[in-house]
Write a protein that binds this DNA or RNA. Structure first.
Lengths: 156, 156
DNA sequence: GTGAATTATTTCAAGCTTAAAGTTTCATAT
DNA sequence: ATATGAAACTTTAAGCTTGAAATAATTCAC
């Protein structure tokens, strides 16, 4: 990934390779910037933000496995992040009556308020970082990426 | 990041937020797939591939700091990855006469051959994974992402 | 020339990440 | 009822990642 600008690749299929490289560099650049700001302004991390963002949409909570599927990361990964969020009082696990294997994970009151604040800043940052992309281009790009993704949805 | 499809965000500036979410999901999906294939088919990792790809472009080698700048990752990170590649015989460090702080890092003969093989497979995978994106759309998307990036090039 | 900043790199601690193996609980077929 | 298997989750080991501190070498101001 992140291959080179020097001997600009050419030939059949190179357009897609170049697209992938640009896509990756763009998302890494933005991610790095967001990570830095989350740390500096809110003393938190991108993975914690991701988990909280997922939970924020669903007040009643999510199962660990749903969370992991939604975030595209492994089960064990989510366990660790949620552990830390719980120890910080931002998230709570609730055992369920029906199935004792599972637990509903949800934002606490404190977590909900904390996330709302961070999310507002986050949206502003995105607006700033993607400021040079016109609203029109943004919609067009989003459309292309969506159709790409539908190609992969529910593959394995 | 990777926020939700459920309460579809709307309002001013939401188009850019949505774009970012799609961008991130697309790149994470592709990255996950590549990581899995690199592991299965070549018993290597994405970070190792990235470093080798960077070095492949420049037979004479790169400084650690150039490598870290190019790959958008921290110095200490590169140290660890290069250490492992060196211990596998794929990469070599060469102390320089001029400046004894620095060392030129380059692919070994073995590393060069290994990378050529992996890179060929990699390009095929990208062609497959992005197959639904037309060459035309690929070029257009690349253009948009490039102009976005120029906004950020050499910021801090 | 000496000392102070600067630069290149490594080391370190904490946290993120995965794949694989392990635990507990549930479902279902006899 | 009870085995068998599947499902939900956690644990573990190895590796990736960052930011900050530490080392070492160079450059620059005087």
């Amino acid at each position: 990934m992140v291959a080179g600008p020097l001997p600009a690749p050419s030939g059949p299929g190179k357009d897609r390779l170049r697209l992938w490289i640009r896509l990756l560099r763009a998302s890494r650049t933005i991610e790095a910037e967001l990570r830095e700001r989350l740390k500096k302004d809110f003393n938190t991390t991108l993975p914690r933000f991701d988990v909280m963002a997922a939970l924020y949409r669903v007040p009643e909570g999510m199962l660990m496995s749903d969370l992991s599927r939604f975030l595209l990361v492994s089960n064990g990964n989510v366990t660790g992040i949620v552990d830390r969020l719980v120890s910080e009082g931002l998230v709570a696990r609730a055992r369920r009556n029906g199935d004792r294997r599972t637990s509903m994970v949800r934002l606490t009151e404190e977590g909900t308020q904390a996330f709302a604040t961070i999310a507002a800043a986050h949206e502003g940052w995105i607006g700033e970082l993607l400021g040079k992309v016109s609203e029109d281009d943004a919609r067009r790009l989003t459309g292309m990426l969506t159709s790409f993704r539908s190609n992969w949805e529910g593959r394995e």
